[in-house]
Amino acid sequence: MSIVILGIDLGKNSCSVVGVDATGAVVARRTMRRQTLIDYAAKLPTCVIAMEACCGAHHLGRLFAAQGHEVRLMSPEYVRPYIKAQKNDDRDAEGIAEAASRPTMRFVDLKSHEQLDIQTLHRVRSRLVGERTNLINQLRGILLERGVIFPAGRRKLELGVDGMLAQGVEILSARVHQLVGDLRAEWKELDAKIGALNTEFIQLARGDAAMRRLTSIPGVGVLNATALVAAVGNASSFAKARDLGAWLGLVPRQYSTGGKPRLLGISKRGNTYLRTLLIHGARAALPALSQSNTPLGGWLKAMISRGVHRNAVVVALANKLARVVWVALRKEATFDRNYPVVPMEIEAV
């Protein structure tokens, strides 16, 4: 029995394992706990270990790589077509092993501890921002039921609530007044936690050369730079700049058949968080870039003059920024804000 590819369907406690030989025949089929799996892999001759890129896969992948194995992580959506008949854990592991043998399969790079740490910070910050938004919406609803209305905007609501708590409003009962004060205190606590994470991101960006290069790109701030480096590293898994934009779901979704191309809205595939950050960054940078005398500014002016919807221009700019990000990471280039005006020169990246 010679295992060439070991397919693993990861679980919280137990994992299903299927080993195949050079001909693709199944030669081993077992279910074991995680620690038993690690010990089992350590006794195997060097082989390919395939897993879906899910929670815990990067940790196990680093352990298997340290044992000398070749680790191949794949997106679950690419594994699904290789699962035959009824779905169960053994079938999933067998499909993972078969998918890993395909020469055209796309694999996910193993993330380092530092990348996972940065991703964790972003996820915690995203949760805190969501909690703050929910709290603000609830606070507006409470005050609206009492006839107290503030203009739109977080800062205006913040000033209005602080003034109301300081002066006192007769329309509010003593208990509701106290409750609003408690909500405002919770709001301040969330602001402090989010601010601390923002400061940590700034320090991370200052100490990393790749992140500093990314922050030189218009529309790419500290949050974008740290999240992109944590997600794609040096972008070595993308052969071309356009591949990064496609991976982020910033390109049109194609539904072509019979030789007739048909392009729909953007695909919205890949990392939603990264795509959101890039789109917001592009929206913030659009006014200044569209007025600049640069190839990028000329490209934006041409789209605006053709009557392209502003949201479409923003998404197109976000896709362009993703391509520039690829150049900055892959070729270690810094964005030059004063590059000469050559029509559509930016298309090269």
Rank of each mutant, 00 (worst) to 15 (best):
I142H: 05
E94W: 08
L128T: 02
A97T: 04
Q115F: 11
Y82S: 05
V129F: 06
I118Q: 14
V17T: 04
T31F: 01
F107W: 01
E145W: 07
Q115W: 00
V26Y: 06
A100R: 08
K111Y: 05
A42S: 09
R127Y: 01
H59R: 08
G153I: 01
N137I: 07
G68C: 09
G153T: 00
L73P: 02
E145V: 12
L144Y: 11
T133F: 09
G61E: 00
V48C: 07
G68S: 12
H113L: 13
A152S: 12
L73E: 01
A100C: 13
R140L: 00
V148E: 00
Q119W: 03
S112G: 11
K84D: 11
V124T: 11
A22V: 08
A93D: 05
Q115I: 12
I96D: 09
G56F: 07
L110G: 12
R132F: 04
V27W: 05
D109N: 09
Y82L: 08
A50T: 04
L63M: 09
I49G: 00
I136Q: 06
L157D: 09
I49S: 00
R140F: 02
L37F: 07
Q115P: 08
E52S: 10
A99Q: 04
I83W: 05
G147A: 13
L135S: 06
L143Q: 06
L121R: 03
T120D: 06
L121I: 13
T36I: 00
N88H: 09
R72K: 15
H69M: 00
S101D: 04
F107G: 08
R146G: 02
E131A: 14
L143M: 09
G24W: 12
K87Y: 02
I96G: 09
H122G: 01
E145H: 14
Y78M: 12
Y82K: 10
R132T: 06
D117S: 14
P103M: 02
V18N: 07
